[in-house]
Simulated assay, not measured.
Amino acid sequence: MPRARRDKVVSLTKVKKKNRGTKENLVTEIRSCSDTYPYIYAFNLENLRSSGFKDVRQHFKTNSRFFFGKNSVMGIALGKTKETEYAEGLFKLGQHLSGQCALMFSKVPPSTVTNYFQTFHKEDFARAGDIATDTFDLPAGPLPQFAFSMEPQLRKMGMPTTLDKGVVTLVKEMKVCTKEEKLNPEQCKILKAFDYKMADFRLGVSAIFEKGKGLKIL
């Protein structure tokens, strides 16, 4: 016989007072969603792009709820042991959370969700530390796409520019990056200035919890 939901006291004694209310609310909302939704999906957010995730939330806005928070707090809501789990089997999901994670409580079945994320991707600008997917060179010459007021900023990025009759001009050829090179902040700024996107944001489901069936690690 399935066990009843447990109304357990949440211990957040190590949390600063100004944050305690927010974290207690997160615990309450996660537990409420555990009662309401039949599926819980866990995501790893190591390469999170806010613009890409906004599209995901928009796609599932009518049938799902997303939660971000410290794993320790989300773990309290779900339960970290069999004795403290909020509902049958949830402690296994609580133990699974590691790194930067998000939870999606949903009415959408796993086949539909996994199919969506297998095809979902969104191009974005690279960040410092990302690996260049292409070699990007700039030939010497005028850069009419930039206003003359941008020239000092481009020089600060490391570009050999000058103003020639009011037109921003690259005085010599420049190699911005080489394929498979680890990008630094200045390179990323230049790539963004030229609207060159090297990041491909994808989001995969790391685990699925289904009421009555338990946890499945993917």
Rank of each mutant, 00 (worst) to 15 (best):
S32Q: 14
I208S: 00
L163Y: 04
L183N: 01
K192W: 05
Y86D: 02
S72W: 07
I131H: 02
E173W: 08
K175I: 11
M1A: 15
R65G: 00
D130Y: 05
S50V: 12
V168A: 01
R49H: 12
F209K: 01
E88H: 10
G129L: 01
A132H: 00
E186D: 14
I40S: 08
T178N: 11
V176W: 02
E29I: 08
E85H: 03
L97E: 05
P142K: 13
T81Q: 01
V15W: 00
P38K: 02
V108G: 07
E123S: 13
R127E: 14
F53R: 03
L215H: 00
C101D: 09
N115C: 10
M198A: 07
L93A: 05
T114P: 08
K18G: 03
L45M: 15
F105N: 02
G158V: 00
C188D: 07
K213T: 09
T161I: 06
P139E: 11
L191G: 00
I40N: 00
M198D: 08
V168H: 02
G204K: 13
L191Y: 06
E24Q: 12
L97S: 02
E180Y: 10
G79Y: 06
P144N: 11
E186N: 15
K216C: 08
P160K: 07
D130T: 01
S34R: 08
P38S: 01
D55R: 13
E180Q: 14
V176Q: 00
K179D: 02
R3D: 13
L103K: 02
A140V: 04
I217T: 11
G79V: 00
E123Q: 13
N71L: 02
D7L: 14
G212Q: 06
L191K: 06
S11Y: 15
D200Y: 05
S64D: 05
K189M: 10
Q153C: 12
D200A: 07
F117C: 04
E46I: 09
M150A: 15
V15D: 07
V176L: 03
Y196S: 06
K70H: 15
Q187H: 01
K92P: 01
I208P: 05
L26I: 05
T162H: 11
Y116F: 15
M198I: 06
D35H: 08
N184W: 07
E180N: 15
M74N: 04
M174K: 15
S106P: 04
F60T: 06
F43E: 02
T81Y: 01
R31K: 05
K213Y: 07
A128T: 11
R155G: 10
N63E: 15
L218M: 13
S149H: 12
F201N: 06
E46W: 07
R49C: 11
E210G: 07
R127L: 14
D130I: 01
K8N: 12
T178H: 10
N19D: 15
A4Q: 14
P2A: 13
D164V: 14
D124N: 09
K70L: 12
D35E: 13
K61Q: 15
D137V: 11
V27E: 00
F125K: 04
D134S: 12
T84L: 08
Y39N: 01
T161L: 07
T169S: 08
L103C: 03
D137Q: 12
L170V: 03
G214I: 04
